[in-house]
Simulated scan of single mutants.
Amino acid sequence: MSEQEDILKFPCRFPIKAMGMNSIELDIHVVEIIRRHVNDLHEGAVTSRPSKGGKYTSVTVTITATSKQQLDAIYQDLTDSPLVLMAL
């Protein structure tokens, strides 16, 4: 088991944050990507917040993560997206 797997006990609640240019498409796109890997998103799982200047938006989706492989796949898809500038 890796050190990260020792820290996270699956299943667990896990916030995923993606940042990109401020647009409604970003929210929709991030949720679509995460839904590929997560069967059920709970009500209130998605929040977004614009930057102070309004140029960027951060979208946070809190999921119930089931494995490190699931998280790795989500982050890979998010970072592969041209709309996502950064994923945390």
Rank of each mutant, 00 (worst) to 15 (best):
V59L: 12
G54L: 09
Q69G: 13
S58A: 15
T66A: 04
V31S: 05
R35Q: 15
V38L: 05
S51P: 03
K52T: 05
H42S: 13
R49C: 11
D27M: 08
K52G: 11
R36I: 04
I28H: 10
V38Y: 02
I33T: 06
S67M: 03
N39Y: 03
G53I: 04
R49P: 00
T57W: 02
E32F: 04
K55M: 08
H29F: 08
V59P: 07
R49F: 05
T66S: 06
S58P: 07
V46P: 00
S67W: 12
E43Y: 14
L26A: 12
A73T: 03
E32W: 03
T64S: 04
G54Y: 06
T64N: 08
S67V: 03
A45E: 09
R35V: 08
T47H: 13
G54V: 13
A45F: 08
A73H: 02
A73S: 14
N39M: 06
E43D: 12
K68N: 13
T64V: 15
V61I: 15
R49V: 15
D72Y: 01
S48W: 07
V38H: 00
V38D: 02
T60Q: 12
E32N: 12
V59Y: 10
V46D: 00
V46Q: 12
G44W: 06
V61D: 03
L41Q: 02
S67D: 07
S48Q: 13
T47D: 13
D72L: 10
H42D: 15
Q69F: 05
G53R: 12
H42F: 04
Q69N: 15
R36H: 14
V31Y: 01
S51H: 06
K68D: 13
E32S: 12
L41C: 11
K52Q: 07
K68I: 04
H29R: 08
Q70D: 00
A73C: 03
T66Q: 08
V31T: 09
G44P: 01
E43V: 10
V30K: 01
G54M: 10
S48K: 11
R36S: 13
V59G: 07
H42C: 05
R49Q: 14
G44N: 10
T47C: 11
V46G: 01
V46N: 05
V61Q: 02
A65Q: 04
Q70A: 00
I33K: 09
D40I: 15
V59M: 08
V38I: 15
Q70H: 01
T47E: 14
A45K: 04
T60R: 14
S51G: 07
R49W: 05
G44S: 08
T64F: 04
L41H: 04
Y56Q: 11
Y56D: 14
T60M: 13
G54D: 05
I34R: 03
T47V: 15
T57P: 05
Q69C: 04
R35L: 14
L71N: 00
